[in-house]
Design a binder for these strands. Structure first.
Lengths: 138, 138
DNA sequence: CCAATGTTGTCAAATAGCTTGACAATGATA
DNA sequence: TATCATTGTCAAGCTATTTGACAACATTGG
């Protein structure tokens, strides 16, 4: 059961303050401000002098940057890696969102319907815990 | 893909400030402090005068209380309902955690193994999208 | 109906926490 | 070696939170 289902809270609506981020992720406020100034991360828009707030998307970016920094990457390289990863995730999400037609059945087993491919139909099934694509006639 | 899997962040380690909670959940800081004083919610322990912080568990409680308040329940009743719900969720979680023995196969289909019952074996299977218990000889 | 209690808003004073800018230290880079 | 990148730290000023108090209003028990 996901956090959202259990709590009714959408993760994208979560908001964090700078000290919470700092505690949770073990990143100093100085780093967060510097990274923001250099354009590597964004905080929610606030008027000048007001306190920074961050959404879940920013948190994920910060975790990622921190991770790659700890692995020895430079800040710019770390931020770049995170951006690319996020882009890939978004592409995957969008792609699957477009192709996924729902769940149907093949031989009595649930199958993910991914629509047409080469005059046939593409399905995804779990077999012995392994994800397998299947091509079938319509 | 869950938030944790995608981000590497454990939801239970999330921390929020009072104004973030207030914004996210549309509950006033006054309410949060009052609810806490009356023992309906808890903030993370801070020394006197320091700012309150809340974890995800508190957030879920607050959402719940707010929900039942909006439905017309009194504060005490709302908090009570949330507590009972949380207890039920915990019981369910613990129970399943104890009984679940892993995934095996029945007739080539994945089956949740729930161990012994009445000299037989209890399984859970998905059939046409419906969750069904099955008793089988070992 | 009345007094007591529950719940929330608001205000004020004190202070905890954040912001910005600056200087310094360190390490990497051209 | 000079420059840039990254982070720490400090100070002054401002923002946000805390606590306590008073008020308003609804609800409840007698």
């Amino acid at each position: 059961m996901s956090f959202k289902e259990q709590s009714g809270i959408d993760i994208d609506q979560l908001i964090f303050g700078i000290s919470q981020i700092s505690q949770m992720l073990n990143v100093s406020p100085r780093q967060l401000r510097y990274w923001e100034k250099r354009g590597y991360i964004r905080s929610l828009a606030q008027k000048d002098g007001q306190t920074r707030q961050y959404n879940a998307k920013a948190v994920v970016r910060i975790v990622g940057i921190k991770h790659f920094l700890d692995e020895g990457y430079t800040l710019a390289a770390a931020a770049d890696k995170v951006t690319k990863f996020a882009q890939q995730q978004k592409m995957l999400h969008d792609f699957v969102g477009q192709r996924f037609q729902g769940v149907t059945e093949i031989a009595g087993q649930p199958a993910l319907d991914f629509g047409h491919l080469a005059d046939q139909h593409l399905y995804g099934v779990m077999q012995q815990g392994r994800a397998e694509f299947k091509l079938r006639q319509d």
